[in-house]
């Protein structure tokens, strides 16, 4: 059974009189352990795809199986629960809460999951260590660099042991050095078994992944494995 399976997905937006078809008849399967980048120009439907994959939005039509459950017709609270337990989000603008420390930001998903304080702190510290941010955990986001902030965000996405990591242009706000560092982290997590889906419009960044799905005008126009993959892992890059 695939981890993620989309069948005949349509998404229609009603903008006044005009109906915009953002996604047209999308069929996509992602297996456990894949590292997929979704590419496309703006307006291609890749963000809409991301929102539906991340259970932030529901398709107008079609079925979406996540871990065998058809989540396309779930109620709001059920979707919130899926987002909490099965999906970890990483955003372009980090989206950390500015008043909370790095550690508290990472703890947040566990608070909504109802975990006890001791367990939360332990798990959050582990997640921060995993992304190479063992120190500075008591600092507020504005006291951290862009790369460090994105590490906090990744730690937050990991902390509830999700089935899938969803990253929306995770390197869009970072310099090239931090971009490589962040992509290394994603690769490392993927090597350890995590399924990662990443939206990006930069081909260089997509080269770090294993599979590229290209969107255009709301449809998938290309879906191919990455050849000559950029590998970090070792000393170089």
């Amino acid at each position: 059974m695939p981890l993620l399976k989309l069948e005949n997905i349509y998404k229609k937006y009603n903008q006044g009189e005009l109906a915009v078809m953002a996604l047209k008849d999308i069929n996509l399967t992602i297996e456990e352990g894949e590292f997929v980048s979704i590419m496309g120009t703006s307006g291609s439907g890749k963000s809409t795809m991301m929102n539906i994959l991340g259970c932030l939005d529901r398709p107008t039509e079609g079925e979406y199986y996540l871990d065998g459950e058809d989540v396309a017709k779930f109620r709001d609270s059920k979707l919130a629960d899926i987002r909490n337990r099965k999906i970890g989000f990483v955003f372009q603008s980090f989206n950390l809460l500015p008043k909370l420390s790095a550690l508290e930001n990472v703890e947040l998903p566990m608070i909504y999951a109802g975990a006890k304080r001791k367990k939360r702190e332990k798990t959050a510290m582990e997640a921060l260590a995993k992304v190479g941010l063992g120190e500075r955990v008591r600092h507020k986001p504005n006291e951290l660099s862009g790369g460090q902030r994105q590490r906090v965000a990744i730690a937050r996405a990991l902390v509830n042991n999700p089935s899938i990591l969803m990253a929306d242009e995770p390197t869009g706000n970072l310099d090239s050095r931090s971009t490589v560092e962040i992509m290394e982290i994603f690769q490392k997590l993927n090597d350890e078994g995590a399924t990662v889906v990443m939206v990006t419009h930069e081909p260089d960044v997509a080269q770090f992944t294993k599979r590229i799905v290209v969107f255009k005008d709301g449809q998938i126009t290309d879906d191919h494995p990455v050849v000559n993959r950029t590998l970090s892992g070792g000393a170089e890059i």
């Binding site: 991340g54 709001d76 609270s77 919130a80 987002r83 989000f89 998903p109 909504y112 937050r156």
Partner: peptide, 8 residues
């Protein structure tokens, strides 16, 4: 943000 990470 809170909703995205699972707040109902």
């Amino acid at each position: 943000i809170r909703k995205a990470i699972g707040a109902k």
